[in-house]
Design a protein around this nucleic acid. Sequence first.
DNA 1: CTGGATGTTGACAGCGCTGTCAAGCCTGGC
DNA 2: GCCAGGCTTGACAGCGCTGTCAACATCCAG
Lengths: 328, 328
Amino acid sequence: MTDVAQRAGVSLKSVSRVVNGEAHVRPELAERIHAAIEELGYRPDRRARDLAAGTTARTVGYVQVDAANPFFAAVYRGLEDVLAAQGVLLMAGSTDASPARERELLEALIDFRVDGLVVAAAEGSDTLLAREIGYGTPVVCVDRVMTDPACDTVVSSNRGSMRRAVEHLVGRGHERIAFLGGRTAVWTAGERLAGYREAVEAAGVPAWERTGVDQVEVAARTTRELLAAPAPPTALVTAQDRISSGAIAALHATGRQHDVALFGFDDLPFAEQLEPSVSVVAQDPRDMGARAAQLLLRRLAEPERDAELVVVDAPLVHRASGDIPPVA
Amino acid sequence: MTDVAQRAGVSLKSVSRVVNGEAHVRPELAERIHAAIEELGYRPDRRARDLAAGTTARTVGYVQVDAANPFFAAVYRGLEDVLAAQGVLLMAGSTDASPARERELLEALIDFRVDGLVVAAAEGSDTLLAREIGYGTPVVCVDRVMTDPACDTVVSSNRGSMRRAVEHLVGRGHERIAFLGGRTAVWTAGERLAGYREAVEAAGVPAWERTGVDQVEVAARTTRELLAAPAPPTALVTAQDRISSGAIAALHATGRQHDVALFGFDDLPFAEQLEPSVSVVAQDPRDMGARAAQLLLRRLAEPERDAELVVVDAPLVHRASGDIPPVA
DNA sequence: CTGGATGTTGACAGCGCTGTCAAGCCTGGC
DNA sequence: GCCAGGCTTGACAGCGCTGTCAACATCCAG
């Protein structure tokens, strides 16, 4: 900037004025400055500007479990959809469910003085987050619920949708419905399990639970074990996309895909084209991201408002696999 | 920081020393400062630190077409895999193939003084990018090639792999092989088309090209049109995942999936479980991202080295759909 | 007990920029 | 011709931090 000022033969302040489009600069002078900027390829330093003006960086930090996972990628896109329109940039990182990494990320983001944080990482350093909320940093939780302190939150209707999916299976006459779910320490996993339990209890059919499944391969192996049982389940409920993938792979590999009903949580690519097509509870992660961004923006505008909980309805998408009847 | 210094009764510089773990601070003093930091919940401001120390922000900008697209999300993850280990944070944005948005993003990223840029957006403001390279900003192109000035680049073996896929189809006896590709202004789309042409010309079978297909729905419609022709293609080659998705949907919807051979570019979720399972050229975008990050890191270390072109081999994954013979 | 080496601390300038404020200029109305 | 009022410009301080350097304290060898 000093170079630009020198080249144009003006003071720093005049350059600053031109760069920021302030009024009160003689057109002739402005032109000279523009020329100097052009020749030097000058771009102002946002960090210095924000520091000097006391403005925030207009950036938002996004902490997710895994950027390559379609769910989180879609949330990211949803955030971006609304944030980019406001000129807000995203800084993001994956935790791979490691609390240490989450802590590291959160701290790095805070050190950069992001305007707000969106956290889509189910487990982890609640304490650090709680503290940060205490200091007034706007935080929105996605797909995770924090109660102390309360925090703006966006979640799907995990429990209710899962319950309805299981009820559908019950309605088709199933009595041996196995549930494959993730680690129950994860809030959403717990909710979905609870939905399953509500449904089987209400129907008076036995609960058959396998939790702690968090990889495709484990889901496939578990499915094979289940199918090999003397009285195997006639229906499978898979509590998230990776588990569905594993179960579908196992079902196809053993040729049982037309015999065992399947209801998955999370929509799947090619769910329509698979044979049988697969019934799912379809979350809309992009929408969740967009809502999270809106919540964040609103909190930025009104810091004192009460924490808001947005529950996005995740509808059932009925396809063939959920309508397979129980075999005798 | 001033608050911390006051509370601990020391100078700013001592706090700075403790925060940065410099030597030459009496343990007792350090402890007092730590206590003050703890009580005040102080976190240093990275922007101010970088500014004062003249260090870079240790951030990398990633410009992609669409964060929700699995290919770009995987590249992102690959970048993160190697960058996070170096304590480098990513700032990313989607362009949706809009040059204006790309320009905006690039400028914003530059204003934040990122250490380097990774660009995975096929079309766009080469001029701005070229200029930035001229100013010495490290830039790595992924899935796009820029020649003037040369720039570190990571691409798949687009042309060769596509040629081999078509050759495989030819080897199975196909003579009516239709190609569904994206907009040829996009470098990768052009390369894949070129690979197709090489193969059909060598085999002496007619070229049958449909380009400019860039949405799932368009791909599906085009596929239906192709199949409705008097002498429909006996094999389809789809030049990217979204086109494959559309073609597969159309094939299944019309019940022709077992009659028409299909070879797709980009691996697909459930490619194995679909019936028929689908043959593809499998790019490894996560690896591409990792290599891009390595290239960037290397250039950061040695700014003067020649631009490097990394071609990642994209192997053919033979499954059932590529082996369907031509119907008479 | 002295000198030099080493350890500890803080004052101060300055990173690139903006806010404040005052100085100098021009305008038009009387 | 004079002055109030507005326009244009730049000097300067300071955002939160670090580098430099000088001041002072402490230690040990001779």
